[in-house]
Structure formats: C-alpha cells, structure tokens
Design a protein around this nucleic acid. Structure first.
Lengths: 194, 194
DNA sequence: CAATAATTGGGACAATTGTCCTATTCTGTC
DNA sequence: GACAGAATAGGACAATTGTCCCAATTATTG
C-alpha cells in the first residue's frame, strides 16, 4: 500500500484513540493493532509517539478549519455562523457525553504532562477563538468581539465537561438553548444601538 | 512514625501530583519519592494505585464539603454563598491557570480511562451541584434550582478550562464578573416576582 | 525480466510500570 | 531490658512501555 495511505489510516486511528482513551493511555501497540499493522511497520511511518500526536493535532486543526470555512462559504450570516458553532455540541452530543470535548480534554491532558505539543493543542482553541471573534466583528461588535468569542468558547467547554459527567441528563440541550438565547440577546443589543 | 500520619502524607502528596500531572502519568515511585519513603513502605499503606486514588477522592470530597459548610455556618445569605462558590475561581486562580480545575480534569481523565473510580469523581460534582441547588432553593427558585446549579457549575468548568489554555490573559477575572452579574440578574428576577 | 527502492513483519532492547515479598528497624509494653 | 507487633527499606517479579533494527516482501522502474 502507498505510504501516504497507511499514514492516513494511522492518523485516523490515533485520532480516535487519543480522543476516547487519552494520549498517555494509548500505546504504540494500541494504535498499530487498531490500524492492523505491525509495530515495526509503524516505526517506518512515525519515529516517535510525539510525531503521531503532532500529526493528529494537525489533522484536527485542518478538519475544524474546513468545517468553519464551509459555514462562511455557504453564505450564512455571522449570527448563523455562531449558532452553527454552538450547534456542534448537539451534532456531536453522543461522543461528547462519552468522552468530553476533543479540544478541551486533549489540551488539559497535554498541559498536565507539560508536553511539547501543548502549543499545538492551544492552536485548536485559537482557531475557534479567532473565527468566532471575526463573526462578532462582522456583527458590529468590534469593541468586544474577542471577549464575546472567549465567552462562548468557555460556555461550550463547560457544557461539554458537565455533559460528560452527566451523560444521561438532557443538560446539554438546555445549555445550548441558553447559549442561543444569549446570542439573540447580543444581537438585540446591537439592534438597539443602530 | 504513626501509620495514620504517614498515610496522610501519602494522600496529600498523591493529591497534589494527581492534580498537577494527572493520575495515569503519576507513578507509584513518584508519590513515594515526593513523600520521602520507599516503595516497599508504600505498599504497607496502600496495596494498589486505585486505593490511593480512592483515598485522594475521599480527601477532596471532605475538603470541599468542609469549605462549603463553612460559608453556610458563617451566616452568609444564599446569594453570598453562591458568590463565594464563584469566588473559588479567583481564590485558586494561580493553580487553575496552571492545571485547570481539580474536579473537572480528574473526572475527564477517569472517564477516558473507564476507571472504576469514575463514580467517585462524579460525587465531587454532585457535592457542588446539590449544595448550589440548595442555595438557589433558599433564594426561592424551587422550580429551577437544579438547572441554575448546573448552569453555574458549567460556567465555572468552562472558565477554568480556558484559563488553563490562556493563563496569561485576564480572562478568568472577566468571566467571574459576568457570573456575578448573572447571579445578580437571577436575584433581580426574584425581586420582581415578589 | 532484473534490479532498485519502498514498504512491511517480527522481534530485540533497556527502561519503567504496578505489584509483591522478606529481612530489618523502630516503638511501645510488660 | 526482653519481646511482640508496627513500620520501613530494598529489591524481585512479570508485564508493558517507547524505541529501534533487520530480514523479508512488495512495488516500481529501466
């Protein structure tokens, strides 16, 4: 098989395992078994475990970047874009209830491990932060766009964490509704000023 | 030294290490070294690593329980109590910026590991949830006390996670102010109804 | 078809892990 | 001061870890 195809399969499996079990708790052998290749072959594609982590983070950044771009390219209004971001929580609610937020939980783990890839994980946060900031700016909130972006980012993180702790309760849906209501209120503030 | 004293020192060191490095990443040897005892002696007090984790969780529950009780016993109003809870974020802001929330990060890790102590970690959330619910009930919000408790819990978790991701920014303080403002608004809703 | 490069499988390597045992030292009581 | 039990130190144990090598196989090219 072409090396690039095998590499892609490794990254895909590692991405899933790092999310479901955590980076530290996932071994070289675990990923190799999930892909269906030998550990020796594995070494041919990735020399160290940290290299896999880097590739997984890169993949996640690309995936999220593409997703965010889609909404903008689809011609959604800035407010619809932000609502779509909030909607991620519902779209992935099953996984989030089981394993939390892929961005937040990875960052937390790497922060504790003092891992060199921590800045890479923070880039994932930055990606959403900057994109959200831009949407709020387009809504006319040039003065507090970043604060609003951080606020909605924090709310999402908190909702994901508690949804993970209480997966059987309809908490996530409630919190999403509150966030949408908050977004409406922000938009109303704008309307009054105009 | 008395066995109970050594045991306490072990739990204290393990508590700190599990918080700063994570449970999985902290080894038997790490804790023993931090306490200043041999691994053999360690085994005399705790037969398995999971037993240490159980003791750490028990300790955390007791500590938080005592802290919450203090505020109520001090004669604070329900609203002051909730404000004190929010104030934890500022009180521990240095640690939170470095390692996140001790409750949330531990739960996330154990959830990923599918660890038997996961319910114990959830108890920590329950402790805060039930205590907060009670305060909101005392404020007269009998109909939505639990939803309000979950909301403030989620906001705290999100604030801690992002403070961990952006430790050098004054985000945590901003978010705390917003949470206090939210609490004031909830109280105002009550006043209007009365 | 031959030869060269790309890809793979199987296993070796030292280090670390959680667990466990035993010999030794300390502590308190008669 | 002798003795019993509590407490400790040091190391053994198999299993697993990340890392690495090398021979065998596959794919590509002339």
């Amino acid at each position: 098989m072409a090396a690039s195809a095998t590499r892609e399969k490794i990254v895909t499996s590692a991405d899933r395992l790092f999310y479901e079990r955590g980076f530290e708790a996932t071994s070289f052998a675990d990923v190799a078994e999930a892909v269906g290749i030998s550990r020796g072959n594995f070494y041919y594609h990735f020399k160290t475990k940290d290299q896999i982590l880097d590739a997984v983070i890169e993949r996640r950044i690309k995936d999220r970047h593409d997703m965010l771009d889609t909404w903008v390219d689809d011609g959604q209004t800035p407010m619809q874009c932000i609502a779509s971001f909030i909607g991620i929580l519902l779209m992935n609610n099953k996984k989030i209830r089981s394993f939390g937020c892929p961005v937040g939980t990875l960052f937390s783990e790497l922060a504790k491990l003092d891992h060199p890839a921590e800045p890479g994980a923070r880039e994932l946060f930055d990606l959403f932060r900057i994109w959200l900031r831009r949407r709020f700016e387009d809504m006319g909130r040039t003065h507090d766009a970043d604060a609003l972006a951080m606020h909605i980012l924090a709310r999402s993180q908190g909702a994901a964490t508690l949804a993970n702790a209480y997966p059987d309760e309809p908490f996530l849906e409630d919190e999403v509704n509150q966030m949408i209501a908050w977004l409406d209120a922000v938009a109303d503030q704008n309307a009054q000023k105009d």
